[in-house]
Every structure is written in structure tokens, then in C-alpha cells.
């Protein structure tokens, strides 16, 4: 059994108006950051996963995203995994 550090980013689908992102973008522009465009706000999850392989770990995290972390009707998610030593895991 291996352990992986999983990072998940959940954002609203591109075609859905992200009013928070738009408001933040307006704020950045009023501060002079005219170069910044297309601000999207999302959620970030970080956790450890135990699995026999990276592929299995990815499947587990994908299921967690579809079932709970993201709402597939309105949100997209991206997953990144890096191996970690089990002893290092928090708590």
C-alpha cells in the first residue's frame, strides 16, 4: 500500500458566469493590475490517499470529486497526485 498527497481544484465550468471571479478581477483592475484577465475562483482540497497504485489513487479521488467535492452539473475538477511517505502524513 502506498500513500499519495492529493490536490484537487474545483472551479465553475468555463461557460458559467463566475461572479466572484469577475468581482475580484474588477478589484484587481482598480488596483492597477490591468494585465490580469479571466479570474476564476475555486476551491482547493488537499488530502492523503492510500492505494495500491497511483492509478487506483486517482480513481478514488475522481470518485470523491464526482460524489461530493464537485457538483458535476456546474463544476470541473482537476487532480494532481504525488507520492508521499505514510509516516509523514499529518495526524
Amino acid at each position: 500500500m502506498q500513500q499519495f498527497a492529493a490536490s484537487v481544484i474545483v472551479t465553475l465550468r468555463q461557460n458559467i458566469a463566475d461572479v466572484q471571479g469577475k468581482t475580484i478581477e474588477d478589484g484587481l483592475h482598480s488596483l492597477g493590475f490591468a494585465q490580469i484577465r479571466n479570474v476564476r475562483v475555486g476551491k482547493f482540497f488537499h488530502f492523503s490517499v492510500q492505494a495500491a497504485s497511483e492509478e487506483e489513487a486517482r480513481q478514488i479521488v475522481e470518485q470523491a470529486c464526482v460524489k461530493l467535492l464537485a457538483n458535476p452539473v456546474i463544476e470541473d475538477f482537476s487532480i494532481s497526485l504525488t507520492p508521499e511517505e505514510a509516516e509523514v502524513s499529518e495526524q
Binding site: L12, I16, A17, V19, Q20, T23, N71, V73, I74
Partner: peptide
């Protein structure tokens, strides 16, 4: 009900925030 998929669609943050 939308989260439970008993109804279609979703409720997003108000446009006015």
C-alpha cells in the same frame, strides 16, 4: 433536491454576491 439529483440543475451564488 438539486444536489440529490431529485431535481435537475443547480443553484449558484446570487449574481449580486
Amino acid at each position: 433536491l438539486t444536489e440529490a439529483q431529485l431535481l435537475p440543475g443547480a443553484l449558484l451564488q446570487n449574481a449580486s454576491l
